[in-house]
């Protein structure tokens, strides 16, 4: 069951499309539910599908196609760090290693306390600020240095 808050947000997204095209709101709806619940379980995906009157599998196709949807738990903070060329040239490796050591996890792993998950991202369209990372999909941190990463982790604790 979707929460009333989620429904209100999804309903707003639905207004962007012709009435017979509810499915068009699936990208937003999945994002909204994921933000609320932390990740997308199969129940969450079917909740969204039902609400938008589309087949479950069609919603699953979407959820599994786009990188930013998480089909497994990702802890409280998902840190996605870009390692693509522009970031790589600006030593994203140093940041990645720093994060790995500090958190004690590799990519796609969740820290034992369930707080952090580290993900390798593809180009985020902000290469001017390389190296950079995104926390929980929606907050970007640019021009990273190990010191800045420490500060960020401290804030997120």
């Amino acid at each position: 069951m979707l929460s009333p808050e989620a429904i209100a947000k999804i309903d707003y997204e639905i207004t962007k499309y012709p009435t017979e095209q509810r499915q068009a709101a699936v990208m937003s709806a999945l994002r909204i539910v994921q933000t609320e619940r932390g990740w997308l379980s199969k129940e969450s995906i079917s909740d969204v599908a039902q609400y938008l009157r589309m087949p479950d599998i069609a919603a699953m196709e979407v959820a599994s196609f786009y990188n930013m949807y998480d089909l497994a738990p990702v802890g409280k903070y998902k840190i996605s760090i870009c390692t693509n060329i522009s970031c790589m040239l600006r030593d994203s490796d140093v940041i990645v290693n720093h994060l790995k050591t500090k958190l004690g996890v590799g990519f796609n792993e969740v820290t034992a306390d369930g707080k952090f998950c580290l993900k390798e991202g593809e180009c985020m369209g902000a290469c001017g600020g390389a190296p950079l990372l995104i926390v929980n999909n929606h907050t970007m941190h640019e021009f990273l240095t190990p010191a800045k990463v420490d500060m960020l982790l401290e804030e997120l604790k």
Partner: peptide
Amino acid sequence: GMMELGMVGRGEHAEITAYVDK
């Protein structure tokens, strides 16, 4: 008349499947 199979994932990881365990 009913989409029961889909291609989930993308690229080389794309797989034809029904919804989870349906």
